[in-house]
Design a binder for these strands. Sequence first.
DNA 1: ATGTACTCCGTACCTAGATACGGAGTCAAG
DNA 2: CTTGACTCCGTATCTAGGTACGGAGTACAT
Lengths: 131, 131
Amino acid sequence: MTQNTIGKVAQRAGVGVETVRFYERRGLVPQPARPANGFRIYPDDVIDRIRFIRHAKVMGFTLAEIHDLLSLRVAPRSNCTTIRQRVDEKLTQVEAKIAGLKKIKRQLQRLVTSCDTRTPTDDCPVLEALQ
Amino acid sequence: MTQNTIGKVAQRAGVGVETVRFYERRGLVPQPARPANGFRIYPDDVIDRIRFIRHAKVMGFTLAEIHDLLSLRVAPRSNCTTIRQRVDEKLTQVEAKIAGLKKIKRQLQRLVTSCDTRTPTDDCPVLEALQ
DNA sequence: ATGTACTCCGTACCTAGATACGGAGTCAAG
DNA sequence: CTTGACTCCGTATCTAGGTACGGAGTACAT
């Protein structure tokens, strides 16, 4: 079994090498072992950790929030309530975002409608609406 | 009638002075007249132009897209089709964004459910799901 | 004429999340 | 033993959209 150098880890986790180093600087990935040659050698579970980060990011968590989540993970049992709160908060945020986008969507649809119903002598109604 | 200095324009358009200068650098606001003292003096319509920018931004257009929109505005009649296309594109983008967020929402809801149905001996199911 | 508010300019800084560069050292295959 | 791939580090750059700073000049009201 070959060792998990940064390149292997990056490849297996589906990110770039620079991203792994970046996450390390942000404290999202722990400082790995450094044998004599100075190369980073990671334990296997760091790959899951990076996948965790990516999944959480897709779920709309920021890196700061993920950092928070990862710290809570140290003693999962006792912190489940806190973690649930984070998920609830994020759910509320996502819902708000959807509501905002729906409003925008309705307005854009109104613009399209005004575009379709204009008479040839009108000025562009979209530009007037944005005015 | 007092002249439209940058501060007046900014205030009337509801943005900061620095923002007006920033938009000027980006070509979103035309170069204003510069009398002997070097102060920017704007025509009245620049306020509408800035409001146009803000509205379009709220609608989800990027500054680059707004720049595009503003160029098209030069001959509105002939470009109405193009403008409508832009709105259509933006509508599609917004819809895609909503769909993506809905997916995220469903996943978050699944997490909450798993949180609620876990037994006390389970590990935190949220963290396991993100794993 | 003096104080305060406004403006000028260039540049730096900010969030968020990476991505790229460059010179030096290291590892592994042939 | 050479070649190519990999790694090291610090720093710079990027997107997007601004915001802030600092020193100097200007305008206007009292």
